[in-house]
Write a protein that binds this DNA or RNA. Structure first.
Lengths: 154, 154
DNA sequence: TAATTGGGTACCATTTTAGTCCTGTATAAA
DNA sequence: TTTATACAGGACTAAAATGGTACCCAATTA
């Protein structure tokens, strides 16, 4: 399935919600309510996002969460790696040269290129895109081109 | 991590191995040996690939597995979905309109576009590419462009 | 100082994944 | 026709990841 974990999904939804009201401080309970998800789980997700530096938090009354930087500067890749760790399709593609099967594998190189292309794609999609209801515009296009270019040998 | 399951990884490696000797019949045991993976597991993977129509099998002595069609007509997306089911980043993106949270989600649309872009990318990478040690050439480029074009609203 | 709100951690239940095994069946060669 | 080979299918188990919960602590503000 090549699927995101459910928590990552939540993270995206919550981030989008915050992005739509950037100047407000969002309490975990409020967000959970708005998004119709269990509070403790949302809370857990928020903590991970803070730790990853995508959100800032403020304790105490009137506290809550805000974006650490503008939505246009937070990417889908950021959100995914905040929850799931680095975006990589295979074990190989995160840590180079640590696969004992590399010798018999014979697929690693191009698989890593594919992985890189996906990562680049995800880096080109911002939270601003996700939060907007309008279709994603051009950014999807450029980075992939540059990848395929750099990957061309001949 | 947005990671492939290990079995999918195996599948790619095994498929590539078969693709490199397309005219031979490959017994599961031989493949397992070549690829340095446990036989029963490789065997299981092969069965899934047959069921998905990517390989054909021949029983009996001198039997084994062959590609069901040329490596250039088998895509990374084929292999992935043979093992993991349809390529989709979220539950949403496989079955439209079955997400009860769609109303409060507000991310579904663009998330699905991203998912589609990834699927298209994976469909543009063939087994022939994976099996070759040479870097992937142009095909990565076109489909993504066409996506971003169709996704452009303005 | 009391109420609010996030921080951290530990824990548990469930599901998924990976791997194994066994029995059956088709095929080819002797 | 027999025998060895090799896939088919399914059941089963062990291990790991995932998702969700609970609890207590720390910071902030009114």
């Amino acid at each position: 399935m090549l699927k995101l974990s459910r928590l990552t999904d939540y993270a995206a939804v919550v981030m989008a919600q915050i992005a739509r009201h950037p100047q407000a401080s969002h309490a975990a309970a409020d967000l959970a309510e708005t998004v119709q998800l269990p509070h403790p789980t949302v809370s857990k997700t928020l903590k991970m996002l803070v730790k990853a530096g995508l959100l800032t938090s403020q304790r105490g009354a009137q506290g809550g969460y805000r974006l650490a930087r503008p939505a246009s500067q937070i990417t889908a890749a950021d959100i995914i790696s905040a929850i799931e760790g680095p975006v990589a399709m295979t074990e190989c593609s995160q840590a180079q040269g640590e696969c004992e099967l590399a010798a018999t594998c014979g697929v690693a190189d191009n698989w890593q290129r594919v992985s890189l292309a996906i990562r680049t794609l995800l880096e080109s999609v911002t939270l601003a895109h996700l939060a907007a209801s309008a279709p994603i515009k051009l950014p999807v296009q450029l980075p992939i081109q540059s990848i395929s270019l750099s990957a061309v040998s001949a």
